[in-house]
């Protein structure tokens, strides 16, 4: 999957913390992954595990109280974290774009929806004429299933689903190399969601665009991504081909996520709920942070963070991986 020669993005040892009144909160810990051009990566995990923080970091759109303590984010070999704000501004939307979790708030209520996207296109010089930009927006609208006539309307005249589609059109407007989609369809109906997922897949390949798809809906991630990373308490704990990871999870946390997910097809097997509460990031338990909720935990899990066990490009950070073909790395 990850052909090195064609790597678009390489995140290396990324760590980040937020300064809060309660002290320092380490939201991202030593996250590394690589993304090939034209492929789709999923990030899954419970709310609060750091998915949005990783995405905001790639976009360099972090709040003032965030501090990156280590790591590199290489986009085509260039470290995004070292760019000046001006250099970054030129790349945002053009090279990396993002569909935000709270997409409703992205559109400015006082401007027509079409105009807002035309401005993004003209700012980045993707089209040189107003007519060109206008035609481009009309094409994008059709792509996401919106009538181009809606370009003339204001955001408040759109339903939630229509606004979400407009924001996706905006994220695609400058032909980005990488689009990050943070829970883009969580608030939508299945029929609209289905249409958007199909459209994303259909345009991704011809454009050679890469996608990072963030969601806690593992069914959606299973359908749209090639590779998936599972996050727990700020760390990646398992990574590999999406099909392999969901069919035979190696990390007990991934297994728990999969078996707590209801499905409409197949046998109606009982759902198991994850015991306990999500971890408190400013007060993590020692050793493997999942151990208080893990059915497989042993003494070593309570004292030492597990090393990676790997097989090919598939790995899991666990002392007792559920898949025996994964061998511990020293």
């Amino acid at each position: 999957m990850t052909d090195r020669s064609d790597s678009l993005l390489k995140v290396d040892g990324l760590s980040l913390s937020y300064q809060t009144r309660q002290g320092e909160l380490q939201a991202v810990r030593d996250v590394s992954f690589e993304l090939a051009r034209g492929s789709a990566l999923g990030l899954v995990g419970e709310s609060g595990c750091g998915k949005t923080t990783v995405a905001n970091c790639l976009m360099r759109l972090l709040p003032d109280n965030a501090r990156i303590s280590a790591g590199r984010v290489l986009l085509d070999g260039q470290d995004v974290l070292l760019l000046t704000e001006e250099e970054m501004r030129l790349r945002r939307w053009r090279r990396i774009s993002m569909v935000f979790q709270a997409a409703m708030n992205v559109l400015d209520p006082v401007y027509r929806v079409g105009q807002q996207i035309i401005e993004a296109i003209e700012t980045h010089g993707v089209e040189s004429t107003d007519i060109g930009a206008r035609e481009r927006v009309a094409r994008l609208f059709r792509m996401v299933g919106l009538d181009p006539q809606l370009m003339e309307r204001y955001p408040h005249e759109f339903s939630g689903g229509m606004r979400q589609r407009a924001v996706i059109a905006m994220a695609l407007s400058c032909d980005p190399d990488l689009m990050i989609a943070d829970e883009p369809t969580t608030a939508l109906d299945v029929i609209v969601q289905d249409r958007i997922l199909r459209e994303l897949k259909a345009i991704q390949q011809p454009l050679g665009m890469s996608i990072i798809y963030i969601s806690h809906d593992i069914a959606v991630v299973a359908e749209v991504t090639d590779v998936v990373g599972v996050m727990y308490a700020g760390r990646l704990v398992e990574m590999g081909d999406t099909a392999d990871v969901f069919r035979a999870p190696a990390h007990p946390y991934t297994a728990a996520l999969v078996s707590s997910f209801p499905s409409v097809s197949g046998e109606r097997r009982p759902l198991t709920s994850l015991p306990g509460e999500p971890p408190n990031l400013s007060d993590l338990p020692p050793g493997c942070p999942f151990h208080p909720r893990c059915a497989y935990a042993t003494d070593v899990c309570r004292t030492e963070y597990p090393p990676r066990a790997a097989s090919g490009s598939r790995w899991a950070a666990c002392w007792h991986p559920l898949d025996a073909t994964l061998v511990p790395q020293s």
Binding site: V190, A222, T242, A243, S263, S265
Partner: peptide
Amino acid sequence: LLSAVPVPDPGHRRQLP
């Protein structure tokens, strides 16, 4: 409606709604 529901099994192919 049913065929629009994503399925967590990666081997599963849905029909087009």
